[in-house]
Every structure is written in structure tokens, then in C-alpha cells.
């Protein structure tokens, strides 16, 4: 067989494999959406699971936990990524040790992060099953990935940009904050949003930290110290992903399957939305500022 023919066959095979993978994923998602769509309506989204069969509080809890997790993670991840890429001598032992540690952390099974959070946060620090325990455990789960994606975005800015800034008599800190960070921003945003998708769908980390109960919330109570307030960070908070898990393990009978499917639809839609936003950041915004 000549090289031309081999090339043709391999191209065909690879295209075929790609098509099959896409077909599989697309039909899987479509199946989940189609089978759950009937369960999703305004009532489902706006009633509590305690009094009806809705997911209002789980949806709020998921978003609130995500927000808190990113608020805690982002400054730490940004600082760590800047230290690793812009300050540390890349050949230093400490830097490569830190890189290795981050790699290991990012592949740590999330159930282990959850149990670790249970032992340390819930029991040792006596935070109980609470939003704050969940957010801290999720931070642990989120940090390595977020740090890595920010580090990659920063490394994408050529070294010569830093050199040019310094040579113009601009301080290193200002070169970073006024030139390098803005250039890396599309990548950083897309990293934040992708990690948000992962955090949003995470269940194992939360089962033993944020807990599996969703006490009915009073959305008119904005006093963060009141146990019924949505803002209270010391209350237990079941999220959408944990809800799916719980509903399926503690079967509620006929309604369980419907609630579970409906919740899956919402979870998938939100994660898909995050991914679309991430793509927007990485393509549209990069076109505007990219080299």
C-alpha cells in the first residue's frame, strides 16, 4: 500500500472515531435532557423539597456554594500561579516541588477530599455540616485545577513582555498587574468558568461536609446569622448534585425518579452554560487581545 492510500485510510478512521464519540456524547446528553424535561417547570424550580418536590433551595445552595468557593479559591490560586510562573525561578527545587504537589492534589479522588473535610472541618474544627465546611472542602478540590489553569494562562504571555515592561522602567509588580494579567485575562476567565462547572457538579466532596439536608429557607430573611437565612454559612446545605445522589439512594418511590431526572436536567443545563461562557472567553475575547 502506498503512503497516500494509508494516509487516506487513517484520516477516514480518525474521522469515524471522532464522529462516534461526538454522536455518543450528544445522544447521551439529549437522552438525559429529553427524559427529564417533563419534570422541569416553574413550580419545580420555585418550591422547597421539604414541602413539595421542588429544588429551589438546592439550586440556591449550589450557586451560593460555588460563589463562596470561588471567592476563597481565586485569590489563593491567582497568588500561587503568579508566584510559580512569574516569581519563582523555574529551575528551583521549591518551585518544582510545588508543581508536583499541585499535580498530585489535582488527581486526588474527590471522595477523599470530602472525608478529609469531614474529619478536619466538620469534626475537628467543629464547623458541622455547613456551607462553610462545604466551601472549604470544595476550595481544596478546586485549588489545584484553578491554579494550574491560571498558571497556563500566565505562561501563555511571552517572557519578552515582562522584559519589555522592565526595560521601560516599569516595576515588576506594575508590569504584572497592568500588562501581563490583562493579557492573560481571557484564559484566566475561561479557567474560572470551567472550574466553576466542575465545582457546581461535585457531589462526593459535599456529602460529608455541606451535608445532605436542605432545611427550608426564608428568602425574605437576609440576616446572615439567622439559621433560616439563605446567606447563613453555618447551616447545612444540600446541592443539586448531592440531591440527585440522595434521591436515588433514599428512594422516595414514584416521585423519586421524576425529581432526579428533573434535577439532572438543571445540573446539565447550568454546566453546559458554563462551558459555553468559557468558550466565549477563550475565543471571542482572545481574538480581541491575542497575539
Amino acid at each position: 500500500m502506498n503512503r497516500y492510500r494509508v494516509n487516506q485510510i487513517m484520516t477516514g478512521v480518525l474521522n469515524g472515531v471522532t464522529f462516534l464519540v461526538v454522536l455518543f456524547i450528544a445522544s447521551f446528553i439529549l437522552y438525559l435532557l429529553a427524559s427529564g424535561m417533563t419534570a422541569v417547570n416553574w413550580h419545580f424550580l420555585t418550591t422547597s423539597s421539604e414541602v413539595g418536590l421542588g429544588i429551589r433551595d438546592q439550586l440556591f445552595n449550589s450557586l451560593y456554594l460555588l460563589l463562596l468557593t470561588q471567592l476563597i479559591s481565586l485569590p489563593i490560586a491567582l497568588g500561587a500561579a503568579m508566584a510559580l510562573t512569574l516569581y519563582a525561578d523555574s529551575r528551583s527545587k521549591l518551585a518544582s516541588f510545588a508543581q508536583g504537589l499541585i499535580q498530585i492534589l489535582s488527581s486526588l479522588p474527590s471522595i477523599i477530599v470530602g472525608l478529609f473535610g469531614f474529619l478536619i472541618l466538620v469534626l475537628k474544627f467543629n464547623l458541622g455540616f455547613s456551607i462553610i465546611s462545604g466551601a472549604l472542602a470544595l476550595t481544596f478540590f478546586n485549588l489545584p485545577i484553578l491554579t494550574q489553569s491560571i498558571a497556563v494562562s500566565l505562561q501563555g504571555v511571552p517572557d519578552e513582555v515582562m522584559q519589555s515592561g522592565l526595560a521601560l522602567g516599569i516595576s515588576k509588580w506594575h508590569t504584572i498587574t497592568k500588562v501581563i494579567l490583562p493579557e492573560a485575562m481571557p484564559g484566566i476567565w475561561s479557567g474560572i468558568v470551567i472550574s466553576a462547572g466542575r465545582v457546581f457538579g461535585e457531589a462526593a466532596t459535599l456529602i460529608y461536609t455541606a451535608g445532605q439536608s436542605a432545611p427550608t429557607l426564608d428568602y425574605t430573611n437576609w440576616n446572615p446569622f439567622n439559621p433560616a437565612s439563605p446567606l447563613n454559612i453555618f447551616r447545612p446545605a444540600e446541592t443539586l448534585a448531592v440531591h440527585i445522589w440522595k434521591v436515588n439512594t433514599e428512594s422516595l418511590g414514584q416521585d423519586a425518579a421524576t425529581v432526579s431526572r428533573g434535577t439532572i436536567v438543571i445540573l446539565i443545563l447550568v454546566v453546559l452554560l458554563f462551558n459555553l461562557v468559557a468558550r466565549y472567553f477563550s475565543t471571542t475575547m482572545r481574538k480581541k487581545v491575542g497575539r
Binding site: Q163, A167, I170, P182
Partner: peptide, 26 residues
């Protein structure tokens, strides 16, 4: 003592911002 490098390396900003930034910083 100014310096120019091998690779052209304008900042990923507008022409105006490229030129105004060093002055602002000074």
C-alpha cells in the same frame, strides 16, 4: 537607558495605551 529587543513585543493593548503606559508609570 532605553532598550529594544529582538522580537517586536508591543503590549496587547491599543497603540495609544502602549505609548501612554510608560509615561503614566513615570
Amino acid at each position: 537607558i532605553g532598550m529594544l529587543f529582538q522580537k517586536p513585543m508591543p503590549f496587547a493593548k491599543s497603540i495609544y495605551e502602549n505609548l501612554a503606559l510608560p509615561l503614566h508609570e513615570a
